[in-house]
Amino acid sequence: MAPTPFTNEIKTLRFLAGEMTQGDLGDKVGVTRQTIAAIEQGKYSPSLEVAFRIAHVFGKPLDEVFRWTNGIA
């Protein structure tokens, strides 16, 4: 399986947000803990809506949570 063409800072942001767990973030965003884990590990590309929800939880703009790494195809 090809990894997602972007990295993310979710793990760091969770840590900085009082060591928020994947389950807590999942509850706030409306997805399961396993889905947060898959996004963090770059195994799953979230929808734009979930990406925005994650960024909103941390109070960050989207491009500070997700960073495109593969050039523009």
Partner: peptide, 11 residues
């Protein structure tokens, strides 16, 4: 708690 959760987009 998990049993009552609705399917998310990945699922």
């Amino acid at each position: 708690k998990e049993a009552n959760l609705q399917e998310d987009e990945r699922e």
